[in-house]
Write a protein that binds this DNA or RNA. Structure first.
Lengths: 341, 341
DNA sequence: CTGTTAGCGCATTCAT
DNA sequence: ATGAATGCGCTAACAG
């Protein structure tokens, strides 16, 4: 089937020079044609394009970018790809990039700000048009590099701190607060919390703080906690729910650090015959698709990860130069009542 | 809190020249030091590094790459980020890249080979060290470009066709066959299939074909099908399961196009009180974490997406030049018996 | 051990 | 409408 193609020019790289020679024009003419700029006679354009096709010429962006001092890359540095929210943000970024000639260079940090520093340094070396990060926690050196670079910097996910340049996301503190208000409104009084390690996940902690504040405003507290050491997962949520139920049987409703954990809680209840939400109620965070498709839809708060990626790109396209003033773009959230709380 | 840093050199870009002047050495000396190459006296190294720090110098990789004709990028072109398997592959890629100075440029195609062609063209312009794609379905032009480029090309996920250069993945045909054998061995005779649109998902179709072949070898067939038009999802799996159960009540076991769909099937059964696996049995594909954490662990076949990414990078690092012979790297699969079939 | 000389492939003046 | 010259920032011989 797949036969080795005859390679017009294997190792002998084809550059503007070769194309120009073959089309019997100057290099600048080829350059103009490739970039659709300036005026070119129709027949010379065709002559050149034929050479381009025949030789399989692909302009070298490395050289082009160096010569024009233009940027054609956008750096993206995220903590991880295993938490589904980040791929969702990437989807928004890819969508935003679609009509442009920018491409994304993506690195992950494993929630380590020193690794983030290394990734940022590596990406800045490519002189990107902008760089997108998650959150506000960076090393001093990272901040310094980001500022010196002069390029657009988007801090995504969170808007609870002042950004370096632009922040795009939602207030996790307010989200936690809204969850508290909502559940109090539904009559719950005895609260539990099921979560994962938040030394790495700063935003989970902000949500927890917002929740506590809402409860405090009604004279309530979180009575019981079940927090795992590792990252969030369905399995962890399931195990921690079992623990919470055993240690604090009086708790009416548990707020979970996110939907993965909450789905684990639902599975625990399904497996042990606990009726939701009467015997025990569960409230998540994120609005993952899977929550909606559970036998009983998960009660949760929807954030908009895709939108965060999209808006981040839109923000930098709208103003390629870093403005004097900082900007905060709130992508909002909504309570999804569901049937588990 | 976050005070605007004093910017040593805002717009006045700092290049080797500036650093060299300040450290009172030549540009090549600075270059050598930045690349840890050649011999340099300790005191001049310190002198230079101090200037580097003071000026916040970050070498321009665009220029460096052009001058040395070395590649520091790896192109990755995948169909989507919404199917969790691709972020998992990306994790493996990021892990493989960790100790190198390569960075990943990532694009998505939405399962459209014309978009893939555009993405590949855009990435080749960056003269990457290698390019990683998903599957074997490419336009003729994509193949041509890939071949002419002379760089390493990895086709990931699938090994059921001859690759352009290297293929890393598992045989989906054999996987489907193994599922059939396994279920026949467990005594099932009346089979159903629940799937999503496979015009885009070629590998789902290969699995189906493998399944049919295994059944045929035992004189069996797939009696009933419930296939949705759109992409796979838990919700779709749930809906299609309802349909299959209604239209073909005699079916004992359904093989699903993947775990997302199968989890939807489990949810349908949970919601309607169908006992697994006695009244109905479910078999998935992929070995997603969530399947393991269901009240009853999902019976499925584990592929190794992370490993696919990892091995792909290892393959190109092992031989930066494209070898004469094609290579196939089988990352294997395993049946996970679970409790739903 | 360090400096000098030439490009890398292209985009951009400025001529013509 | 096209060509010639210059340089983007850096690396790579080659001298010394």
């Amino acid at each position: 089937m797949e036969q080795r193609q005859r390679l017009p020019d294997r190792k002998s790289k084809v550059t503007v020079r070769e194309v120009a020679r073959r089309a019997e024009v100057s290099e600048s003419t080829v350059s103009r044609i490739m970039r659709n700029t300036g005026l070119v006679a129709e027949d010379t354009r065709e002559k050149v394009m034929e050479a381009v096709r025949a030789m399989g010429y692909v302009p070298n962006r490395i050289a082009g970018s160096l010569a024009s001092l233009d940027a054609f890359l956008v750096g993206v540095v995220i903590p991880s790809l295993s938490n589904i929210v980040f791929p969702e943000v990437l989807q928004g970024i890819q969508a935003g990039l679609e009509a442009t000639d920018l491409q994304a260079v993506i690195s992950t940090t494993d929630y380590d700000i020193d690794r983030e520093e290394a990734m940022v340094r590596g990406i800045l070396a490519w002189k990107p048009a902008a760089i997108l990060l998650a959150g506000f926690e960076h090393t001093a050196t990272t901040r310094l590099m980001l500022n010196q670079s002069g390029i657009r910097v988007v801090e995504m996910m969170d808007i609870d701190s002042p950004p370096i340049d632009v922040a795009v996301g939602t207030s996790h503190r307010r989200a936690g607060h809204a969850i508290g208000r909502h559940l109090i409104g539904r009559g719950y009084r005895r609260f539990g919390y099921v979560g994962h390690d938040w030394t790495a996940d700063h935003r989970a902690r902000l949500r927890y703080e917002g929740l506590c504040q809402a409860l405090a405003e009604s004279g309530l507290t979180v009575e019981a906690h079940a927090r795992a050491e590792g990252p969030s997962s369905v399995g962890t949520g399931r195990a921690q729910t079992a623990r919470l139920r055993a240690e604090a049987p009086g708790v009416q409703v548990a707020v979970y650090s996110n939907d993965d954990m909450a789905v684990g809680g639902v599975f625990h209840c399904l497996a042990t015959g606990v009726t939701l939400p009467d015997q025990f109620a569960i409230f998540g965070f994120n609005g993952l698709d899977i929550g909606r498709d559970l036998p009983q839809p998960l009660s949760t708060l929807r954030s908009h990860r895709y939108l965060i990626g999209r808006r981040s790109i839109e923000a930098i396209l709208a103003a390629p130069e870093r403005p004097a003033a900082r900007q905060v773009i709130d992508t909002g959230f909504e309570i999804f009542p569901g049937e588990t709380a």
